[in-house]
């Protein structure tokens, strides 16, 4: 079965490009422009990987992370953000987040991170 990935970013282009690149790798991808609609979706469906922007209006990446970990402890979370210098946040999330990428994110690295996480998860 295909692994499925959720992408949350309030800039459409980030989700669109990620979806395009990750679908080429054989993943099933759903994109969301805000945390709220993503969490609504998550109540109905689980995802293997959640890639979320940190800074978003309304429900931000940290809150998404908390919810994911509450609902699906096994789901891998990858955080992306435009602001690279967030040591404190990174520190706080270190245990729960697979990887942390500053934007612009090299797609190749994102793919590698997803692959590694899924392999680890599969044991």
């Amino acid at each position: 079965m295909k692994n499925n990935i959720m992408i949350i970013d309030d800039e459409k282009i980030v989700g669109d490009m990620a979806k395009l690149s990750l679908e080429q790798e054989g993943y099933e991808v759903e994109t969301f422009l805000d945390g709220e609609s993503a969490l609504n979706r998550m109540e109905k469906k689980s995802f293997d990987v959640v890639i979320t922007d940190l800074k978003m209006k309304g429900i931000d990446g940290l809150e998404v992370l908390r919810n994911v970990k509450h609902l699906y402890p096994d789901t891998v979370v990858i955080m992306i953000t435009a602001f690279a210098n967030l040591d404190v946040a990174i520190e706080a999330m270190r245990d729960d987040v697979q990887d942390f990428f500053p934007k612009p994110v090299k797609i190749k690295e994102l793919k590698a991170s997803i692959k590694k996480a899924l392999e680890k998860k599969a044991g």
């Binding site: 282009i13 990620a18 435009a82 934007k103 612009p104």
Partner: peptide, 13 residues
Amino acid sequence: EKLGGDYLFDVNY
């Protein structure tokens, strides 16, 4: 390089 398709970028970048 960043707008060439190998990176996820946003308008802020």
